[in-house]
């Protein structure tokens, strides 16, 4: 089994699909000759040709628009948005067009496209390179939104996304690209090498949507997390010696409600984590779902641990980030409740 970091796993997924299917092509800002600002597309142009991996104008609306037109014509475009913070000019094309094409035409036209974009903070990116806008997309019917937390899932989910016949937003937690991150920026960087999820098959495999992954089995509290926060949850619970049932949701829409309610009904306590701002964040949806399906099993109020309702600040990055202190306080509250 090969060892890959998340960048290599993502690149491998595209390489596998481009080798298998001539209808798969990749484009975005700086993705061609240069290989992308995070190197996710490095070597793809050289291997598969200029017309299959190419640079686009700085125009997220345009990138989304051509992806839709190509997908409607039967191609399977993978469009990279350099940072999720830049996705908004393309929002209309995603929300009103890509996600609605199938419905509006009653299946005559579809948009089997994948949008890849890095999300989250932790790299001193400031307000415009750190945001987590997932909730703005999980509100859109017709779109799927997924987010891996490790190289193995990244490759499998990306291949599933490319093969899916509906538009998929594939969010890449950039803090996890090169290695595991447990929430303490001052501890030495951890590599994916040697980690079980850093073992990634070279060839084709898929990871299904609408299926959460159990990161840890426990009995005292359920922790719902995705992306960067999965490993903060895991490390914090381990450090606290708490028996936590940790679910990496992986697929936000569609959501694995079954695993969530099964877990919360078992533990009776639930902490929800995300890096994005709190108000109307995806945690609000998760909290509502848990309340609806597990109310009579709950022993304590549901806790949400999130970023503050401020823009993502630069110098105060680690004051903003929902790190181990905020997470452990919530776990403690929910256990006491």
């Amino acid at each position: 089994m090969a060892q890959m970091n998340m960048i290599e796993a993502i690149r491998s997924a595209m390489d596998v699909k481009m080798s298998q299917d001539p209808d798969v092509l990749v484009f975005g800002e700086d993705v061609g000759y240069f290989g992308g600002v995070f190197r996710c597309t490095a070597g793809l142009q050289e291997k598969h040709g200029l017309h299959r991996c190419f640079d686009t104008p700085i125009s997220e609306g345009g990138i989304m628009g051509i992806a839709i037109g190509m997908a409607a014509h039967g191609l399977r475009p993978i469009a990279e948005i350099q940072f999720a913070d830049y996705i908004y000019p393309g929002y209309d094309q995603i929300a009103s067009e890509a996600a609605r094409l199938r419905y509006r035409s009653n299946g005559q036209f579809t948009a089997p496209l994948t949008i890849r974009t890095p999300v989250g903070g932790g790299i001193y990116g400031g307000q415009t390179h750190s945001q987590s806008p997932e909730a703005l997309f999980t509100h859109i019917s017709g779109l799927k939104t997924v987010i891996p937390s490790n190289p193995y899932d990244a490759k499998g989910l990306l291949i599933t996304a490319i093969e899916d016949n509906d538009p998929v937003l594939f969010l890449e937690p950039k803090r996890l690209y090169n290695g595991l991150f447990e929430g303490d920026p001052h501890s030495p960087a951890k590599s994916w090498a040697g980690h079980k999820f850093g073992e990634v098959p070279e060839g084709h495999y898929t990871v299904p949507f609408e299926k959460a992954r159990h990161i840890a089995e426990g009995t005292d509290v359920t922790i719902l997390a995705y992306g960067t926060m999965v490993w903060v949850a895991e490390a914090t619970a381990r450090e606290m010696g708490v028996s936590a049932d940790i679910l990496d949701l992986r697929s936000l829409l569609p959501l694995d409600l079954e695993s969530i309610s099964e877990s919360v009904q078992k533990t009776g306590r639930c902490v929800i984590l995300h890096e994005a701002t709190r108000t109307s964040g995806f945690g609000a949806e998760l909290s509502a779902q848990v309340q609806e399906s597990c109310f009579y099993h709950l022993e304590a109020p549901i806790e949400r641990v999130t970023g503050w309702d401020t823009p993502y600040p630069h110098a105060q990055e680690w004051a903003y980030f929902p790190g181990p202190i905020r997470v452990s306080k919530a776990i403690r509250r929910v256990l006491e409740g």
Binding site: I66, A67, I68, G69, M70, H73, S96
Partner: peptide, 16 residues
């Protein structure tokens, strides 16, 4: 919205 989609369709014609 469909102007740029049509351009993408045209690009797909050329790609194919």
């Amino acid at each position: 919205t469909q102007l740029i989609q049509g351009v993408g369709w045209g690009m797909a014609c050329a790609y194919k």
